[in-house]
């Protein structure tokens, strides 16, 4: 039972941040595409803005890995 809960927790640790990141990137991406269409010189800034929410998933991944290692 404990193992199952750990596995569930690990999946939630990466799943929920992944959904949050996807939502954030969708919003930033659509706004960024509009901005780049009007001002191509802002592409670099837009890539940076688009990439910022990914950190949440990376942190979620680290937490999930730590849980999985406990499981092992």
């Amino acid at each position: 039972m404990e193992k199952a809960l750990l596995a569930l927790a690990a999946s939630l640790a990466i799943g929920i941040p992944a959904l949050a990141t996807a939502y954030a990137q969708a919003r930033i991406g659509s706004a960024g595409a509009g901005t780049v269409a009007e001002k191509p010189e802002t592409s670099g800034t837009m890539i940076i803005l688009e990439a910022i929410p990914e950190t949440i998933v990376i942190l979620g991944f680290v937490v999930a890995i730590m849980m999985i290692l406990q499981l092992a």
Binding site: E54, T55, I58, L59, F61, V62
Partner: peptide
């Protein structure tokens, strides 16, 4: 936080 971001290389 930036340092932790490099974990993506492994991920």
């Amino acid at each position: 936080g930036n340092v932790l971001s490099y974990v993506r290389i492994a991920a």
